[in-house]
């Protein structure tokens, strides 16, 4: 299943807190599409997701933001 979350309006560290909550709510194997801004969120979200055993499958730029695709 594909889930999505927009954290472009959040500030650090709530960016990561929101992603962690969302990841806890979805099933293993599901995909989470995280829309985020460049800078700190783009640096920390993919790295932290990998550290926690998830897989970052794609990072795609769209306009001013990025989609980070995380497989739980």
């Amino acid at each position: 299943m594909l889930h999505s979350i927009d954290i472009t309006k959040e500030r650090c560290p709530m960016t990561m807190v929101k992603v962690k909550l969302k990841l806890s709510q979805i099933e293993k194997g599901d995909m989470l599409d995280v829309l985020l801004a460049e800078g700190e969120p783009l640096q920390s979200v993919p790295r932290t997701a990998e550290e926690q055993g998830h897989h970052v499958e794609e990072i795609r730029k769209e306009g001013a933001y990025y989609h980070v695709m995380i497989r739980k």
């Binding site: 560290p13 990561m16 807190v17 962690k20 909550l21 709510q25």
Partner: peptide, 19 residues
């Protein structure tokens, strides 16, 4: 499903960030 209010998410954010 695990859920928190916005206020709880912020209150406990420093715990939630800990792996």
């Amino acid at each position: 499903m695990i859920d928190f209010t916005q206020s709880q998410l912020e209150r406990y954010s420093r715990h939630i960030l800990l792996n």
